[in-house]
Simulated scan of single mutants.
Amino acid sequence: MKKNFTLLLLLTLSYSFSQIPTGYYDTATGSGYTLKTQLYNIITNHNDQGYDAFDAFTATNDLDLYYENDNSTILDIYSENPTGIDPYNYTPVIDECGNYNGEGVCYNKEHVIPQSIFNQNAPMRGDAHHLLPTDGRVNGFRSNHPFGYVGANLVSQSGITNPTRNGSKLGNNINTGLFSGYSNTVFEPIDEFKGDIARIYFYFITRYETQVTNWNYDMFNGTSDQVLTDTFLYTLLNWHFNDPVSQKEIDRNNAIYTYQNNRNPFIDHPEYVCQIYNSQCATLNTPDFASVENITVYPNPTINEFYISTTTTLKSIIIYNVNGQIIQKIEQPNTISNETYQVSNLSSGFYLVEIASDNGKIIKKIIVN
Score class of each variant (00 low, 15 high):
33 Y>A: 03
111 H>Y: 03
50 G>Q: 04
35 L>G: 14
7 L>N: 08
241 F>W: 04
10 L>T: 00
364 K>F: 09
107 Y>V: 10
237 L>G: 02
184 N>M: 08
108 N>E: 10
157 Q>C: 03
89 N>D: 10
338 N>H: 14
106 C>A: 11
31 S>V: 08
360 G>E: 08
179 F>M: 10
91 T>C: 04
177 G>D: 15
256 I>D: 02
6 T>S: 15
93 V>Y: 14
173 N>I: 06
106 C>E: 01
57 F>H: 05
308 I>G: 04
106 C>N: 03
222 G>Y: 12
115 Q>M: 01
122 A>I: 06
155 V>R: 05
326 I>F: 04
227 V>W: 04
8 L>V: 06
282 A>Q: 15
362 I>N: 03
240 H>V: 15
191 D>P: 00
24 Y>H: 11
175 N>H: 07
202 F>N: 03
356 A>P: 01
328 Q>I: 13
334 N>T: 14
151 G>K: 11
186 V>G: 03
213 T>A: 15
10 L>W: 02
350 F>L: 13
335 T>I: 14
74 I>N: 00
361 K>I: 15
342 Q>D: 03
361 K>Y: 02
231 T>E: 14
17 F>R: 00
218 D>E: 12
25 Y>D: 06
123 P>Q: 09
296 T>H: 00
158 S>I: 00
293 E>V: 01
149 Y>P: 01
341 Y>P: 04
54 F>Q: 00
131 L>Q: 02
230 D>H: 10
240 H>G: 12
305 E>K: 14
306 F>T: 05
284 L>H: 09
173 N>Y: 06
351 Y>H: 11
95 D>M: 05
92 P>C: 05
105 V>M: 05
111 H>G: 12
221 N>H: 04
157 Q>N: 14
142 R>G: 06
216 N>W: 02
137 R>S: 15
61 N>C: 01
211 Q>K: 10
132 L>R: 11
88 Y>W: 12
232 F>A: 13
71 N>K: 10
41 N>T: 10
317 I>E: 00
144 N>H: 06
326 I>H: 05
321 N>Y: 05
45 N>E: 05
